[in-house]
Every structure is written in C-alpha cells, then in structure tokens.
C-alpha cells in the first residue's frame, strides 16, 4: 500500500508517502525525524509498518521543512530507510 499522509491547501501540496509493501517496520525514520512525525504500529491489515502519527497529518507541511531542506541538516528519513519506502511531495 502507498499511504499518502498530508494535505493540499492554497499554498501547495504536502504529502509524505510511505510504501508499506517495502517498509519492514525498522523504525529508523521515527528515530531520526527532528519533528518526530513517524511511529511504527500495526496497520488495519496487521502489518507492522511506519506511518505518520495521526495527530500530525494535518501539519506535516508545517513540521517538516521538506525533504531537500531537511537533508543538509541531519541524517534524514530517506537516508536511513534501507528499503527506500519514504518519499516527499515537496
């Protein structure tokens, strides 16, 4: 499953996509994200995978500066994901 967490508003589209078909639930993204956007939990089909915390989906565009801008600061969520499950729309 491709899970798109985020929103679109007048200022643009802000979606973080997690491909749960490849995610192995290792939790590295949750560990490195400076805004603590991610968590690992069983989904509706009992697969343990990463997801954006439900309470934060409406503010991903505020809490996450966007992939390009985060990359030069910290070990980012894309870099630590061995299977390449995470992508950003901005």
């Amino acid at each position: 499953m491709k899970a798109n967490y985020g929103y679109a508003d007048g200022s643009g589209e802000y979606f973080i996509t997690i491909d749960t078909d490849v995610c192995d639930g290792c939790g590295e993204c949750a560990r490195v994200c400076p805004s603590s956007l991610f968590e690992v939990a069983p989904d509706d089909y009992d697969q343990v995978v990463a997801r954006v915390k439900e309470k934060l989906t409406r503010s991903v565009g505020v809490l996450c500066p966007g992939y390009e801008r985060c990359r030069d600061k910290v070990p980012d969520c894309h870099a630590v994901c061995r299977v390449g499950a995470i992508s950003h729309s901005w």
């Binding site: 503010s59 565009g61 505020v62 809490l63 500066p65 966007g66 801008r69 600061k73």
Partner: peptide, 8 residues
C-alpha cells in the same frame, strides 16, 4: 513557524 522552519 512552519514558514520559518522551511527556510531554517
């Protein structure tokens, strides 16, 4: 804050 966060 989100906008400030974007530019760093």
């Amino acid at each position: 804050y989100g906008m400030v966060n974007r530019v760093g």
